[in-house]
Design a protein around this nucleic acid. Sequence first.
DNA 1: ACCCTACCTTAGACATTGTCTAAGTCAACA
DNA 2: TGTTGACTTAGACAATGTCTAAGGTAGGGT
Lengths: 138, 138
Amino acid sequence: MSDLLARLRDRHWRLTAQRRVVAQVLDGDHVHFTADEIHARAVALLPEISRATVYNTLGELVALGEVLEVSTDGRAKRYDPNAHHAHQHLVCESCGTIRDVHPSGDPLGSLPATERYGFSVSGVEVTYRGLCPNCAQK
Amino acid sequence: MSDLLARLRDRHWRLTAQRRVVAQVLDGDHVHFTADEIHARAVALLPEISRATVYNTLGELVALGEVLEVSTDGRAKRYDPNAHHAHQHLVCESCGTIRDVHPSGDPLGSLPATERYGFSVSGVEVTYRGLCPNCAQK
DNA sequence: ACCCTACCTTAGACATTGTCTAAGTCAACA
DNA sequence: TGTTGACTTAGACAATGTCTAAGGTAGGGT
C-alpha cells in the first residue's frame, strides 16, 4: 500500500490525511467494500472525514486505475483495490460476498469478430453467481 | 409475445391493461430499456399507468424468468426480454447501447473447481465493453 | 348478466445511493 | 513562513427504486 501512496505522490497527488485514510481502508487485496462501508471505516480512523471526500477519492482512484469499480447487483457499487492482477468475481446471490477468481482461458478471445458488430471491444468482465458455503447451508 | 401473455395466463396472472402494455413495450427480442424508458413508452399507450406498477410488473416478470435484469453500470437497471436464449452483452462505454452477443465456448466451464471456494455456482454473466461504431467515430 | 372478493393499481411519501456547490482549510512549494 | 490552488466540508439536490394505504377491477361463481 505504501507503493500506492508513492505512485500517487509521483502523480502529484496531494497527500491529505483523508486520502491516506481511504487508502488505508482499501489496503489488503481482497476487500470489496461499498462507498458507505469505506466511509464508516474511514470515520473510525478520522472522525471528521466527509462522505463527499470518500466519493471524490474513490472516483479519483478509479480514474487513475488504482481501484476497480464493480456493480454486481444494481445496488451500491463496490471498490476493488486489486487492480493490478487480472481477475474475475464470484458473487454470493444471498449475502453479496465477493471472491476474486481466476478462470482459465482468455475471455476476450471468446467473442468472434462476427459477433462484435463493429464495436472496438476493449475489455470483458465475467461474473460468476452462486451461493457461498455459509448461505448454501441455510 | 402473445406466447408470453399465454404463459402468464397459465400461471394465473391477472391480465390487466397495465401488464399488457408493459409486455407490449418489451416486445421484440433486442431491447434493453430502463424502467423509466419502459414507463415513458407505456404512458404513451396508457396514460394513467403509474411508475409503481411498471416496477411491480417488471419485478414479477423477472421473478417468473420471463425477463432478465441487467445492471451494467451501476446506474439504472435494464430489462432484457430475451430470457429464453442464452446470450451475453456487449456494452458501449460511451452511450450505453447494449447488443446481445453469443460468445463461443461455455463460460461456466472456465472456472476450475479449485477456484470455486465451496460456492455452488449457478450462473455466469459475461459483459464485453467497448465503443460502438457511432461513438468510436467521434 | 351481475356480484364478490382477492388481487391489482395508484399517488405520493420515503429510502438509498450518488453528485454538486459554495465556503473554508491546508499541503506543498518558494 | 507565506502563498496559493487544490482539497475538504456540510448539506442541498438528483436519480433510482420501494413501500403504504386507499380505491379499482378481472375473473370466477352464481
